[in-house]
Design a protein around this nucleic acid. Structure first.
Length: 351
DNA sequence: AATGCCTTCAACCGCGGGTGT
DNA sequence: CACACCCGCGGTTGAAGGCAT
């Protein structure tokens, strides 16, 4: 994804100072003239007249950052209001907390979201909605604020370009069946190019795949009665036991945290990534599923609740579309697909 | 070159839940 | 129980650089 080069460089004076702490860097003096930095300099002095301790707002200076980082290094974090006072920062505890968590923490990761991070965001948002903090827990080094901004600036923009709401079924289906499968492919491609990460990416992909499978089973259960639910749960576990590497997964990987926690409810609400791939490939869904899954029960057809315009659009080879707008977009991509086509910034330009 | 719009993201705000007194 | 305070979350704002005209 081409996140923003321009803006990253723009914010880099500030960002880098923090990212490189304590070897703080260059400078943030520019921030001194943000108009909403209401209380600095002379104005600050003037307000000292009343006994209320004035509070600074707006962008942080390097000095403030250093003060906060040093204080936390010595005393730890938490108790933010006390911390702000004790450190001598003319900031609210809230502001200190935010600055630390979103910016100064040494483990904050910066830069573009990788393909698997994007995949996870899309995936988890499908499941949890705007639970940014919860989503962020599964992207090590990423903050809820960053993910929220990503969603609002990128994903919602794309939804707007498709003339639909980011929360609409249509857009979600487009994500599940078109965008996410190809992000998953990107993950594979990256893994193939980097042996060290292969297990990690494979693991991520497997987890995503399992969720799609679980979703199918849930739908089968809905159609056939409750018994299938038990089967679904059992099959899910068995496959996971067989499929997942027994060791070697980095404990810090996002997929690991998913395995250990986030999907422990069975993931039955999950995106049907593989279904999207099947449809995109124009392959025979049931036959492929049986071939893929071995011990799995024969799968149901693609989800019945899927927006049919997306199903048909995804089966681009068939050339039959109900939703002309989306189908036009899909046909456009199918005619000009390239290896890097599904880079996030490029995906939606084909419409 | 000048101007205005767009995009990004750091930072703020309001609110709700938790905890201590 | 009531109140105050703290913390964390999600939504929103606005500065600044990029881009189009």
């Amino acid at each position: 994804m081409a996140t923003t080069q321009s803006c990253q460089s723009r914010s880099s004076a500030c960002s880098k100072a923090a990212a490189c702490f304590p070897a703080a860097v260059a400078v943030d003096e520019e921030h001194g003239h943000h108009s909403h930095q209401l209380k600095g300099g002379a104005q600050e002095e003037a307000e000292n007249d009343n006994n209320k301790p004035e509070l600074r707002r707006g962008p942080w200076t390097v000095d403030e950052d250093l003060t906060l980082v040093n204080y936390i290094a010595d005393n730890g974090e938490g108790r933010w209001n006390n911390l702000a006072r004790a450190a001598g920062l003319k900031r609210t505890g809230k502001s200190c907390r935010l600055r630390w968590l979103n910016y100064l923490r040494p483990d904050v990761k910066r830069g573009n979201f990788s393909a698997d991070e994007q995949l996870l965001i899309l995936d988890l948002h499908t499941r949890w909605g705007n639970r940014w903090s919860k989503i962020a827990q599964h992207l090590p080094g990423r903050t809820d604020n960053e993910i929220k901004n990503y969603w609002r600036t990128r994903v919602q923009k794309h939804a707007k370009q498709l003339n639909c709401d980011a929360n609409s079924k249509r857009f979600k289906d487009a994500m599940r069946y078109l965008w996410m499968p190809h992000l998953a492919d990107d993950v594979d491609t990256i893994a193939a190019a980097n042996d060290d990460d292969e297990d990690h990416h494979h693991h991520l992909r497997l987890l995503v795949l399992h969720h799609h499978q679980a979703q199918h089973l849930q739908q089968a259960a809905a159609a056939a009665g409750g018994a299938a639910n038990d089967l679904a749960a059992g099959a899910y576990d068995v496959r996971q036991l067989h499929a997942l590497p027994s060791s070697g997964m980095a404990a810090t990987s996002s997929s690991d945290s998913l395995a250990s926690e986030s999907y422990d409810d069975g993931g039955l609400l999950f995106a049907n990534l593989r279904a999207g791939e099947m449809l995109m490939d124009g392959g025979d869904w049931a036959a492929q599923q049986e071939a893929d899954q071995g011990l799995w029960p024969p799968p149901p057809p693609p989800p019945s609740d899927l927006d049919q315009s997306v199903v048909q659009a995804a089966g681009a080879g068939a050339g039959q579309f109900q939703d002309m707008e989306l189908s036009g977009w899909v046909q456009g991509f199918s005619e000009s697909i390239t290896d890097n086509f599904w880079a996030l910034e490029e995906i939606w330009k084909m419409q």
